[in-house]
Design a protein around this nucleic acid. Structure first.
Ligand SMILES: O=c1ccn([C@H]2C[C@H](O)[C@@H](COP(=O)(O)OP(=O)(O)OP(=O)(O)O)O2)c(=O)[nH]1
Ligand SMILES: [Mg+2]
Length: 532
DNA sequence: CGACAGCCGTA
DNA sequence: TACGGC
DNA sequence: GTCG
C-alpha cells in the first residue's frame, strides 16, 4: 500500500517500531476513475539494482521512498545467505550427498479421506484469500492453504488432539501458523481468522466485484474505492455512464454475473458439447472434438465447458480459419452470444469447408499479424523454434437446457502432434498441472507446457531462436501415458488428477534424467516434497 | 530473500 | 507492461 | 504461508 504523509507523521508520534495499520483515508490509492484512465505507465517500482528506490513523480503519487530490506545490514538475511553459501560449498566438495537429510519429512501418505474438519477449515482459509487477494501475500497464502488442505486428508493418521502436533511439525508444509490454527480448531472447533475475514465489509465488497468475469483484485479494489459495493451498484453506475471506461469484457461479465456464478450439470455440458462438436464436424470434416476440463475429470457439475479440437490431417499446424468458421456458425445459429476473445477468420469471407492440406506451403507461412493468419501466436516461433498453430477462443454460450441462462465456453485447437500435451493441460485440474510442471522442471530439468516437453539447457530454455529445429523440439508423446512415462510419474486417470499431491514418482522409473542433482537435493530443492 | 507453472489475450 | 484468465 |  502507498500511504499518505499524514500516516507517516502519525507513526513518528508513536515513537514505536510497530506501526499502525493505515486507515482507508491514510492510504494513497492513486486511482483514477476508470473512464479517465490513460495508458498504463510502466511500473518501475521495485526494479533496478539499488536497494533504495525513489518513488516516481511526486505530484502524482505519494512521496514515499521504498526501502528494500537488503542483505547489507540485516543479520537475519545475512545468516540465510551464509547458510546457503555453505550448503553449496559442501555439495561441491562431497557430491555423494543423499544423506544430508536428517529428518524424514515425508511420512507415508494414503488416499483415504482423513481429517475432514481440518481440511475444510484450511480450504475455507484458502478460498477466502483466493477470492479476495487484497495484499500481495494473499495469493501465496491461498496457494499454501490449498496445498495443505489436500495434504491433511492424505495423512496416515487422524489428528485428534494436540499431542500429535509435534508430529505435524516434521511434515512438509505445516508451519507455525497452520499448526496453531489446527490447535485452535481442536480446542474450540472453529477458527477466528475465518470469522474475521468473513466479517470484513471491505473484503466482502471487493469479493463481490472480483466475481465479475475479467475483474480481478486491482480493478475490484478500484471499484470499491469509487463507492461501489454490490453488483447492483455497478449496474447502476454503468447505466448512468459512470463506468464507460470498463473493458468490453467487463461489461459482458457484469451482464452475466449471476449466470457465471452458477455451475452446470454434466448433462447440460454434454448437450452443449453435442452442439459444438456437431457444428465442428460440418465446418471441418474429420475433426475430433472432445469435452475436456472438469467434465472429463468426471465432476458432477462444471463451471464452464472446455472443448479441444484436433484434426489427424493437420499434424504440425492447424487448419487455417477453422476455429473462426466454427464460431461464426455458432453465432449464426444463435448459440454463441458473446466473444471474450477475438477470433481470426470469423468475419472473413472464407466459405464453409475448403480444406487446405498442411503440406500446402501457404499454411505454413501465413504468420503476419496484419493478415488474418489464424492461430500462430508470436511466441511460438520465436521461443520454441518449432512451428505451431494452436489457437483458442473464449465466449458465452446460450444454455440449451435452461432458457435464458448463459454459459462460459472455451474452445482450443492444436496441431495433432501436440495432442497428448494439449489434452493433459486442458484436462487439469489447475493444481495438478502446476504440480506436474513443477516436477518436470525441478526433478527432471525439463519444461512442460501444453505444446510439449522441452529439455532445458537447449536453445528453447535460453530463449534463443533455434537454428537447428531439433534442438528446440519437444520430446514426442502420442498419449498422456507417454508423458507420465517420460517424466517418471505414476499414471493418473483423469478423475484422479484432482490435487497437487496426485503427482507421484513412479517407483520403478528409468527416467530421462537431465539434471545432475543427487536425489536428496532433488527432494528438498523446494518445499514440495515428492513422495515415493 | 526468492521460490512457489507456464502461457495467452486485452488495453 | 499490468492485469486477468485458462 | 512455508521452505531453504
Ligand atoms: O490456472 C489454470 C487454470 C486452468 N488450467 C487448465 C486445467 C483446467 O482443467 C483447464 C480448464 O480450465 P477451467 O478453468 O475450465 O477449469 P476446470 O478444471 O474445467 O474447472 P471448472 O469446472 O471450474 O471449469 O485448464 C491450468 O492449467 N491452469
Ligand atoms: Mg472448465
Amino acid at each position: 500500500r502507498t500511504v499518505t504523509p499524514a500516516w507517516i507523521l502519525a507513526q513518528f508520534k508513536h515513537s514505536s517500531f510497530r506501526h499502525q495499520e493505515p486507515t482507508l483515508d491514510q492510504c494513497w490509492t492513486g486511482l483514477a476513475h476508470p473512464s479517465q484512465k490513460r495508458k498504463a505507465a510502466p511500473d518501475t517500482r521495485n526494479k533496478g539494482g539499488g536497494w533504495i528506490q525513489k518513488s516516481r513523480n511526486l505530484h502524482e503519487f505519494a512521496p514515499v521512498t521504498v526501502v528494500k530490506a537488503s542483505s547489507v545490514d540485516n543479520p537475519m538475511i545475512l545468516r540465510i545467505h551464509q547458510a546457503k553459501k555453505k550448503r553449496i560449498q559442501s555439495q561441491q566438495s562431497s557430491s555423494s550427498g543423499g544423506d544430508s537429510v536428517g529428518v524424514v519429512k515425508n511420512p507415508p501418505l494414503c488416499n483415504r479421506g482423513r481429517n475432514e474438519g481440518i481440511s475444510n477449515m484450511l480450504k475455507q482459509l484458502s478460498n477466502l484469500h483466493l477470492e479476495c487477494p487484497l495484499g500481495t501475500m494473499d495469493h501465496w497464502r491461498a496457494y499454501h492453504y490449498g496445498l495443505m488442505a489436500g495434504r491433511v486428508k492424505q495423512l496416515d493418521f487422524e489428528i485428534v488432539d494436540e499431542r500429535v502436533l509435534p508430529r505435524l511439525q516434521h511434515i512438509q508444509g505445516f508451519g507455525d501458523s497452520i499448526r496453531n490454527k489446527i490447535k485452535e480448531y481442536l480446542q474450540t472447533g472453529t477458527c477466528q481468522k475465518i470469522k474475521e475475514l468473513e466479517r470484513d465489509p471491505y473484503r466482502k465488497a471487493v469479493q463481490s466485484m472480483i466475481k465479475i468475469w475479467s475483474i480481478g483484485p486491482i480493478k475490484g479494489k478500484e471499484l470499491v474505492e469509487l463507492g461501489y459495493r454490490t453488483i447492483r451498484d455497478v449496474r447502476k453506475g454503468l447505466s448512468r455512464g459512470e463506468l464507460d471506461g470498463l473493458s468490453a469484457n467487463a461489461k459482458i461479465g457484469i451482464d452475466c454475473y449471476e449466470d457465471f456464478e452458477e455451475r452446470m450439470s454434466r448433462s447440460e455440458v454434454s448437450q452443449i458439447g453435442d452442439i459444438v462438436i456437431r457444428t465442428c464436424r460440418q465446418v471441418l470434416p474429420g475433426a475430433e472434438a472432445t469435452i475436456m476440463g472438469s467434465y472429463r475429470r468426471g465432476l458432477p457439475n462444471c463451471g464452464d465447458i472446455d472443448v479441444l479440437i484436433l484434426h489427424p490431417d493437420f499434424v504440425e499446424t492447424t487448419p487455417k480459419g477453422a476455429l473462426g468458421r466454427l464460431i461464426r456458425m455458432l453465432h449464426q445459429s444463435g448459440h454463441m452470444l458473446h466473444d471474450l476473445t477475438s477470433v481470426d477468420g470469423m468475419t472473413a469471407g472464407g466459405n464453409g469447408t475448403e480444406l487446405q492440406s498442411e503440406s500446402d506451403d501457404s499454411v505454413f507461412h501465413s504468420r503476419s499479424s496484419e493478415i488474418e493468419g489464424q492461430g500462430e501466436t508470436s511466441m511460438g516461433l520465436q521461443k520454441y523454434g518449432h512451428y505451431h498453430g494452436s489457437s483458442s477462443y473464449m465466449g458465452v454460450f446460450a444454455s440449451p437446457t435452461d432458457a435464458g441462462k448463459r454459459r462460459r465456453i472455451d474452445i482450443k485447437i492444436y496441431p495433432y502432434q501436440e495432442r497428448a500435451f494439449a489434452s493433459m493441460y486442458f484436462t487439469g485440474n489447475g493444481d495438478f498441472n502446476r504440480s506436474m510442471r513443477l516436477w518436470s522442471s525441478k526433478a527432471r530439468g525439463m519444461t512442460l507446457n501444453d505444446h510439449g516437453l522441452f529439455p532445458n539447457g537447449t536453445d528453447f530454455a535460453n530463449g534463443k531462436e533455434s537454428v537447428d529445429k531439433l534442438k528446440g523440439a519437444s520430446l514426442p508423446a502420442a498419449t498422456e501415458e507417454d508423458i507420465f512415462e517420460l517424466l517418471g510419474l505414476e499414471y493418473r486417470a483423469p478423475s484422479e488428477r484432482d490435487s497437487f499431491d496426485a503427482i507421484v514418482e513412479k517407483s520403478t522409473s528409468q527416467p530421462v534424467a537431465i539434471v545432475e542433482l543427487d536425489k536428496g537435493e532433488i527432494h528438498h530443492e523446494m518445499k514440495h516434497i515428492w513422495i515415493d
